[in-house]
Amino acid sequence: MALAALPLIIFTVIWGVVGIFLPFVVPKGPNRGIIQCILMLTAACCWLFWLCCYLAQMNPLIGPALNKNSILIIAKEWGNNIEDN
């Protein structure tokens, strides 16, 4: 199980605030219902979209196949030294 708690909590809280908390503080007016609806749907869509992407990578069944050039560039640019032995 490779579900890191921190990102899950952070993004759930962020979208939770947008989708659950903000609808309560929308100012009264003729468009209140519409704004609440917009906020909740936005939060639901964006959260689910993030979650799916996160879960899809959580337990990868295959690894990335890289060609030689890419490996060398990654090693150089992302500070991932290749051991000599």
Partner: peptide, 27 residues
């Protein structure tokens, strides 16, 4: 071409926190 093995140390066991891991773009 070399494929990284997700079962080994090549994968840090925790997914990229937001969105697709950039490694897939170069794979």
């Amino acid at each position: 071409v070399l494929q990284l093995d997700p079962g080994s140390d090549a994968y840090l066991q925790y997914p990229y926190p937001f969105g697709m891991d950039p490694i897939w773009q170069v794979a």
